[in-house]
Simulated scan of single mutants.
Amino acid sequence: MITPQEIKKKAERKYVSFLQQLVDNKPFEKLVIRGDKSYTKTSFPEFEKEIQLIISQSKEKIGFGYSLEFQNVKTKSLGFQTLPTSIFFETENDFLKFLGRKNEVELFCKSTKFTLETFPDLKVWLIKNPKKVIANQADWESILKVCQYFKQNPKPNLYIRELPIKVHTKFLERNQAVIRELLDILISEHIKTEEKLFEKRFNLKFAEPQIRFKVLDKKISHKFFSGLDDIAIPVSQFEIMDLPIRKVLVVENKTTLYTILTLPKMSDTIAIFGSGYSIINLKNVEWFNVIDLHYWGDIDVQGFEILSQFRGYFPHSKSVLMDKQTFDKHFEYDNGTPTNISAKLNLTSDEQELYNILKENNWRLEQEKIPFEYVNNNLDLD
């Protein structure tokens, strides 16, 4: 026979649909709980104990909660007995007091009512996500303040913490997930749907990644940077940089970037710290399409995979010092990091052959282990 605890569990499962009906303004209907219709007790005292337990927590005894309807039913072992054949909540008050959710629902109704008055477009979202409203109940008023601001200013072009919204400075950062869902609906025509980062998606300023580069031409460093040759600027500024550059060398590791400074100076050339897979930050540099691009990475599977990624952005890119001759001459039998990538890479036949050897044996030659003299004699950017 079903117990009061089991009735509560089943009632809890109906809570979300109840909340959804509230948002949809549907009246409460008698809510039936399906009970266990098999009665297997062979001892009358045990049977009587179960019956009394379920009655003790019913509306008849405590003034709210589930109601019971009884019928005289023939049991297998105890003959005819008066048993509860229907368990139901007759009113909304009975249901909520039984679950201990009355105050929670009052706040939920207040929040959803104000939300629908302010943003009718959110009705479908509210119906689908009542538990998110409950989970964010304490902050719901502030969440709507943020939504109201963006509705009126869909392209703020400000940093998150300088938005003129009367909420805590870190509030939006802490509540980005639910705010994002709401703004996707409310200002859908203004968002950048392809962007995942909140700031980019909703037209905000943000702390951009920095592109660090070395100017290898003294004339350029003196004319444009007061003699400075080790520079870092935001991606957006790097994308529009206008310098008389003909060649770019992208290196994978920071140590190698330092080494570049000791190389003979190269005219019209800069070297960029690619920082491994962060090379994605360079993908929108359109002026790369009209200059010579060279990539120098570790001779391991990741180095060639990053080269392939870079060449996916700029097909004319060439690799330097990532050949079998360099590998055979300087390899010290270091282990690499295994890869799970199986897709076809943007590599030349020679690069692919070396990549296969590295992958099969899990080998690695880090670029900083190549002696400077060898680099100086073999780094060819022509």
Rank of each mutant, 00 (worst) to 15 (best):
L31H: 11
K49D: 12
Y355G: 01
D380N: 14
V375Q: 07
G276R: 01
Q57T: 12
E373G: 07
I240T: 09
S278V: 09
H316I: 12
N378L: 05
D292L: 08
L321I: 01
E194A: 13
S38W: 10
T75Y: 04
K318A: 07
S67A: 12
F70V: 05
E373H: 13
F80L: 15
T115V: 10
N136R: 03
S226H: 09
K110E: 13
I220L: 03
D184S: 09
F372G: 08
K151S: 15
T40K: 11
F213K: 00
D24R: 11
Y374F: 02
V251F: 01
K200C: 01
P264S: 10
I7Q: 07
Y277H: 11
K76P: 12
R212H: 07
T348L: 13
K218I: 08
A343D: 14
D380W: 07
D300C: 01
W125Q: 02
K145Y: 07
V73K: 13
H294Y: 15
Y313I: 05
L22W: 09
Q52P: 07
G63K: 01
K329D: 09
K265E: 03
L116C: 01
E208K: 02
F47Q: 00
L172W: 03
V73F: 00
N153R: 09
F64I: 08
G336D: 10
I55W: 11
K223V: 08
V250C: 04
E141R: 14
L107M: 11
L249P: 01
V16Q: 13
P84D: 03
I231F: 03
R311A: 06
K61S: 15
C147G: 01
L99R: 06
D350Y: 14
V320G: 04
T255Y: 14
E90F: 05
P84M: 02
F206Y: 15
F171E: 04
E69R: 10
G227C: 10
T3Q: 05
T337R: 13
N203V: 01
F288H: 00
K247T: 14
I245P: 00
I143T: 01
Y66L: 05
E239D: 06
T3C: 02
T40M: 09
A11C: 04
E12W: 05
P338C: 05
I260H: 02
Q5D: 14
I179Y: 02
Q210I: 12
L257C: 07
I279P: 01
V105E: 03
G79S: 07
F213P: 02
K102E: 15
S17T: 14
G227P: 02
I165A: 03
W125T: 06
S278Y: 10
K74S: 08
S278L: 09
L53M: 11
K318I: 08
N25I: 11
K59G: 04
D300Q: 02
I87N: 06
K219A: 12
K49R: 13
S58D: 03
Y39D: 06
T348W: 03
F89P: 04
V215W: 00
A138I: 15
D382M: 10
R180E: 10
L321Q: 04
Q325F: 10
E6L: 14
K41Y: 12
D334T: 14
E92S: 15
Q137K: 09
A343E: 15
N284L: 10
R34Q: 14
